[in-house]
């Protein structure tokens, strides 16, 4: 198939960017979206133009490194990561716009590459259970009811790709944060730090410049791991409880 790509090019963090149009031809529907960009990059390289910078690593939908806004949708038209999106989801003659995640908390580094360090700093603020190596009790000493373990797992499936922020009209990181709050909050091991965790993470989130949540639900629709909106509810509930307890 033949396609017209409109791609955001930006030379560096402070440079002014612009959309540039690139036609691509002979794209196979078995290619992944990123392989299609690889093909384009090989052509650019051959022509002496600098290839388009974009992030990707595992290319099997789990590391969370890739992420493009494809014709206005985070990770494109399917519920999956950009690397797992295949060209059979598009038709011959399509015009596709490709942009980086847009959020001030995710500044653009170059072309389609953004800096998601703000997510790491949110985790640093409290997204962990303090258990020094070697201090752990026997694993079977604390049983975890299966429904709780399953819900924790569901929330822990988050890959930290940032699609929720990219899709949110407010550029809010609440789904990412809610997933971590829910994951650790469902487990008995996570209880001692539960109040402090939510308060500190939310405070860091706001400090990073993410927007607030107005319960629109775009995040959950864009999430490649289908994390439900529940987790934001859980976050709000935990936050309300923590504030009432004076945390």
């Amino acid at each position: 198939m033949n396609l017209t790509l409109k791609i955001w090019r930006q030379a560096g963090p402070k440079a002014k960017g612009e959309m540039v149009t690139y036609p691509v031809t002979d794209i196979s529907e078995d290619m992944s979206f990123l392989e299609m960009l690889d093909v384009l990059n090989e052509q650019l390289n051959a022509r002496g133009e600098e290839p388009i910078a974009f992030d990707s690593d595992c290319r099997e939908g789990i590391c969370g490194m890739c992420g493009l806004m494809i014709s206005g949708k985070a990770h494109g038209p399917e519920v999956t990561t950009t690397c797992q999106l295949h060209m059979r989801s598009f038709s011959d003659g399509d015009e596709i716009t490709i942009e980086p995640w847009r959020a001030d908390a995710f500044p653009v580094i170059k072309d389609l590459v953004v800096d998601r360090g703000s997510f790491d700093r949110i985790i640093q603020a409290g997204g962990f259970i303090s258990a020094n190596t070697g201090s752990a009790p026997e694993a079977h000493s604390v049983p975890v009811p299966k429904p709780k373990a399953d819900r924790a797992f569901m929330a822990a499936a988050c890959i930290g790709c940032g699609a929720c922020v990219a899709a949110c009209p407010n550029a809010s990181g609440m789904l990412f944060m809610g997933a971590k709050i829910t994951h650790l909050g469902e487990l008995p091991q996570g209880q001692p730090e539960r109040d402090a965790r939510v308060v500190n993470m939310v405070s860091q989130h706001d400090h990073e410049g993410f927007g607030g949540c107005t319960n629109i639900g775009e995040c959950s629709s864009a999430c490649p791991k289908e994390i439900p909106l529940d987790v934001i509810n859980q976050l709000n509930k935990d936050l309300r409880g923590a504030l009432m307890r004076g945390e």
């Binding site: 942009e99 899709a167 009209p169 809010s172 993410f210 107005t214 629109i216 775009e218 864009a222």
Partner: peptide
């Protein structure tokens, strides 16, 4: 705050399910 959180807008933005009511 939402405006400040995304000072560079998308060129193309398609809503997945944001309905009239929430917008």
């Amino acid at each position: 705050r939402a405006r400040g959180a995304r000072t560079t807008r998308y060129v193309a933005k398609a809503a997945a399910r944001a309905t009239v009511k929430s917008k």
